Measured scan of single mutants.
Amino acid sequence: RNRTTFTSYQLEELEKVFQKTHYPDVYAREQLAMRTDLTEARVQVWFQNRRAKWRK
């Protein structure tokens, strides 16, 4: 699989949710996936990576 390149809009939306919660539930991830036109799996992985970056 190729690396996903996120648009500025997608990143904005993802970051907005990340500010509210670092662990969005499956419903929140589904909503976000629909809004950003990404798969729920991509959203889930983005949050995993974002949490790792945040911990550093």
Rank of each mutant, 00 (worst) to 15 (best):
R1D: 15
R1T: 15
R1I: 12
R1G: 12
R1Y: 08
R1L: 07
N2M: 13
N2V: 08
N2C: 03
N2T: 05
N2L: 06
R3G: 13
R3A: 06
R3V: 04
R3C: 15
R3D: 15
R3E: 14
T5L: 08
T5W: 09
F6M: 13
T7K: 08
T7V: 04
T7A: 07
S8I: 07
S8M: 09
S8A: 12
Y9K: 15
Y9T: 15
Y9H: 14
Y9P: 03
Y9G: 08
Q10K: 03
Q10R: 02
Q10F: 00
Q10N: 03
L11K: 05
L11W: 05
L11F: 04
E12W: 04
E12G: 11
E13I: 02
E13R: 02
E13D: 03
E13H: 01
L14S: 01
L14V: 02
L14H: 03
L14C: 09
L14E: 00
L14R: 00
L14Q: 00
L14M: 12
E15L: 02
K16T: 09
V17E: 09
V17L: 14
V17A: 14
Q19L: 12
Q19E: 13
Q19V: 11
Q19I: 08
K20L: 10
K20M: 12
T21R: 04
T21D: 11
H22Y: 01
H22N: 03
H22R: 07
H22E: 09
H22A: 11
Y23C: 08
Y23K: 05
Y23S: 07
Y23D: 10
Y23W: 08
P24V: 04
P24A: 02
P24L: 04
P24W: 00
P24K: 00
D25H: 03
D25W: 00
D25E: 04
D25C: 05
V26H: 10
V26Q: 13
V26F: 12
Y27P: 13
Y27M: 07
Y27K: 15
Y27I: 15
Y27T: 15
Y27A: 15
Y27R: 13
A28D: 10
A28N: 09
A28Y: 13
R29A: 05
R29N: 02
R29M: 15
R29Y: 04
R29W: 02
R29I: 15
E30M: 12
E30W: 13
E30D: 03
E30V: 05
E30R: 07
Q31L: 09
Q31A: 12
Q31N: 14
Q31P: 01
Q31H: 07
L32R: 01
L32M: 02
L32K: 00
L32E: 02
A33W: 04
A33K: 07
A33L: 08
A33N: 01
A33M: 08
A33Q: 06
M34Y: 04
M34A: 14
M34G: 12
R35I: 10
T36D: 01
T36M: 04
T36Y: 07
T36V: 10
T36F: 09
D37S: 11
D37N: 15
D37Y: 07
D37P: 02
D37F: 13
L38Y: 00
L38V: 04
L38M: 06
L38C: 05
L38N: 02
T39F: 03
T39C: 11
E40T: 14
E40M: 14
A41F: 07
A41M: 13
A41R: 07
A41P: 09
R42Y: 06
R42E: 12
R42N: 03
R42S: 13
V43R: 00
V43H: 05
V43D: 01
V43F: 06
Q44D: 14
Q44H: 13
Q44N: 14
Q44A: 12
V45G: 13
V45R: 08
W46T: 00
W46I: 02
W46E: 02
W46V: 00
W46S: 01
W46C: 01
W46Q: 00
W46F: 03
F47S: 02
F47Y: 03
F47A: 00
F47T: 04
Q48Y: 08
Q48V: 10
Q48L: 10
N49M: 09
N49D: 10
N49I: 05
N49V: 08
R50P: 00
R50V: 02
R50Q: 10
R51S: 02
R51Y: 04
A52C: 13
A52R: 08
A52I: 15
K53D: 15
K53S: 12
K53P: 06
K53C: 11
W54S: 11
W54M: 15
W54I: 14
W54K: 13
R55F: 06
R55A: 13
R55T: 10
R55S: 12
K56Q: 14
K56D: 11
K56C: 01
